[in-house]
């Protein structure tokens, strides 16, 4: 598992943001997209074209999986909407990336950058 995880680092900012969003629970694409734009204030742009490209890669890499049915709380919404959920691999990869960033933050602090 560790090798599989390390091979994916570092993550692109948008991938990490998607994983962070889904860590809160399964959701549909548009909500994830909007959440990222709002949370980052546009620093990590999540325009539809770029967003779905990255989402497709995340799906191919098994960081994210598509739910067959709308998750609890979303029943009865637009049936064409697809819902995505974080996979165990996605969770590991996100954790590894965050630890990497944390190491960087620790180093930055030690050197007076932060």
């Amino acid at each position: 598992m560790q090798d599989r995880v390390q091979g994916h680092l570092p993550l692109k900012p948008l991938v990490l943001e998607i994983l962070l969003s889904l860590a809160a629970g399964a959701n549909h694409g548009y909500a994830v997209m909007q959440g990222i734009e709002e949370r980052t204030g546009g620093t990590v742009p999540a325009r539809p074209g770029a967003f779905y490209r990255v989402l497709a890669r995340a799906l191919d890499a098994d960081f994210v999986a598509e739910l067959a049915e709308p998750p609890a709380g979303f029943e009865g919404s637009d049936p064409r909407r697809r819902y995505y959920i974080l996979t165990p691999l996605g969770r590991e990869v996100a954790r590894a990336e965050l630890e990497r960033l944390e190491d960087a933050a620790v180093l930055g602090r030690a050197r007076g950058l932060l």
């Binding site: 549909h28 694409g29 548009y30 539809p48 967003f51 064409r80 909407r81 697809r82």
Partner: peptide, 9 residues
């Protein structure tokens, strides 16, 4: 896979 969602977004 994604055209529908992109259009919606």
């Amino acid at each position: 896979r994604f055209a529908h969602e992109i259009v919606e977004a």
